[in-house]
Design a protein around this nucleic acid. Structure first.
Lengths: 320, 320
DNA sequence: ATCCATCTATACGCTTGAGTCATGGATCCT
DNA sequence: AGGATCCATGACTCAAGCGTATAGATGGAT
């Protein structure tokens, strides 16, 4: 709408006190001190101005003087080195970068509000961690049904590198796992069962069948992905266990399988989330299903965890 | 491990100045003023203490005195009314609530860092908004391939209520849409084509077929979901357009269809993301495919947007 | 058992910076 | 032109946060 010199830095972002030692030596051009100087007060001020429409009204909403609002926003712009709002005497409108900063600011403030609420009274959100394949095709139904049944508790699915680490670090309140955790700090419950599938190259002779048996995989090389952890050779009768190879990444796993040199075993939700040209998934009739569990911190279960277990159990039951 | 009185409030959380008016009248027992009193300095302090292991080392890391660290954390605990750390002379360990607060604090600080980086130099993340069905089965491949090709730019898929609103509010940097936006502020590019499917009740006579034609739906009532916006009667020849009804929610849409009284038309990714017992999706052979587009802010495109378009185009092309 | 080392909490004075009040400059409406 | 409204800025005030110094607590070593 206006290709004017919009967000020119209003002033040098140097400030005065370079009190932070800069021993990093990375040569990064960004003024690292400004990261430390941003304060919530400034973000609250920015949001209030945009919401209220004028500096004056924002001042009333914040319970401070208009001068304070003006100065606080100016300090934020100076710290960031970017003009965030275009002021005219009749209206105040965010610049392009201002708009982006604003969106971030709202997220920050929302997160802080969650933090406070969670610390003080209840918990605002239920964060369910998953390391790998999450809930497969039930994921969306779960989110939808949860939102309807428990609108007061926001559901978040967060990806974690390790389920135990995610729980231990407080990155999630509960986690989807596919085997019992042998860690006394955590407890878990089965919410449903998933079929086991084998992954085959599309041109594999077995790919023509609708399903296969464990014995059909006898002479093959079984490719195990360490991170999924849903495959063991124990499924096979002790006298006819296949040779194994390992990968550490699904992509590697899928690629190797698509060449036809190996076969894989996995759970249904992996097949759902990682379709791949050249790879087909077929049920393994005589492999016992794999249990999908929800795990939580034993000493400190999230109050909404039982409801999540109940809903998931219902979803899996209905789909079975 | 220790069922002691862990996170007992260290002191009354009353503070002194109840300067914030409490005209809400909700009777919430939480001290709303404390939400305003939490500051980033306190969160940085908490994180530093846990990371460094002791107050003293945290003080060194933060470049302040040990006394300041002690006071700052105490002020945070007082504001929240909860004990966050268990101090012994040999080690300092987070309490249960401390762990959760810590996770939130890290998110807040990360978000602030993103804000600063995005405002000052480049943009830390590419947020792709979707209103409804997103990218369907390409979603995961997109995230995976993006992470490999552009590790410096975090990809986030965010759900927005309206694509234009999401872009306008700065909630996302680009958005998946299925029709050209007639809004001069935005521009869009086609990244791929999706088949159109019709949704039928499982016991519908047409459900037995592998695919259907538009003419087969002649006498039916077509159920249109306003939010998806992927259905118009213009697909049908002008002389045989079906009657229509509207819904405003997919769930309603699916339920109505499963009763057999209506049929739906949608894009492939909807079928992928909303499988439903009692509803089957069948390709409509003579309905022209629907274009999947990526839209962005015309004046201020995200620097990574072209790369996203390229990757998505590649993914759709490969799958075709 | 005592001493020492280490770590956190508190007391006191000082400095910084966020706020208020008052005023100036700019823009739009009447 | 006059008035109204709105943002920016200068001078001043005062509380909040910091550093120094020290007390209290805990675990290990002699």
């Amino acid at each position: 709408m206006d290709p004017s010199p919009e967000d020119a830095p209003p002033e040098g972002a140097s400030g005065k006190g370079a009190s932070v030692e800069d021993a990093s030596g990375t040569g990064a051009p960004v003024d690292h001190a400004s990261v430390m100087n941003v304060e919530l007060r400034q973000l609250r001020c920015l949001v209030a101005i945009v919401d209220e429409g004028t500096f004056t009204d924002a001042a009333i909403a914040l319970g401070v003087s208009q001068a304070a609002v003006s100065r606080t926003l100016a300090s934020l712009e100076r710290a960031l080195g970017v003009r965030l709002l275009r002021r005219t005497s009749r209206e105040v409108a965010p610049t392009a970068t201002g708009l982006r900063v604003l969106a971030h600011a709202r997220r920050v403030l929302g997160e802080v509000a969650d933090l406070v609420q969670e610390a003080m009274s209840g918990r605002a959100s239920l964060r369910i961690g998953y390391a790998w394949s999450a809930l497969g095709r039930h994921t969306l139904a779960f989110q939808r049904d949860w939102a309807r049944a428990h609108p007061e508790t926001e559901l978040r699915l967060v990806r974690v590198n390790s389920v135990t680490a995610g729980l231990a670090e407080g990155a999630c309140d509960a986690a989807v796992v596919r085997r019992p955790l042998d860690d006394r700090r955590f407890d878990s419950a089965i919410v449903g069962l998933e079929r086991r599938l084998c992954a085959l190259a599309a041109d594999d002779p077995l790919a023509g069948r609708r399903s296969v048996r464990l014995a059909d995989l006898g002479g093959r090389v079984l490719l195990i992905d360490r991170r999924t952890g849903t495959t063991t050779t124990e499924l096979f009768p002790p006298d006819s266990r296949p040779a194994t190879r390992e990968t550490h990444d699904v992509d590697e796993w899928l690629t190797a399988i698509s060449t036809g040199r190996c076969v894989g075993m996995t759970a249904e939700s992996t097949a759902h989330q990682y379709p791949r040209p050249g790879v087909v998934y077929r049920p393994v009739r005589d492999a016992e299903p794999i249990a999908v569990r929800l795990a939580w911190w034993r000493d400190d279960p999230h109050p909404a965890a039982p409801a999540a277990i109940e809903l998931l159990t219902e979803l899996y039951r209905r789909a079975a």
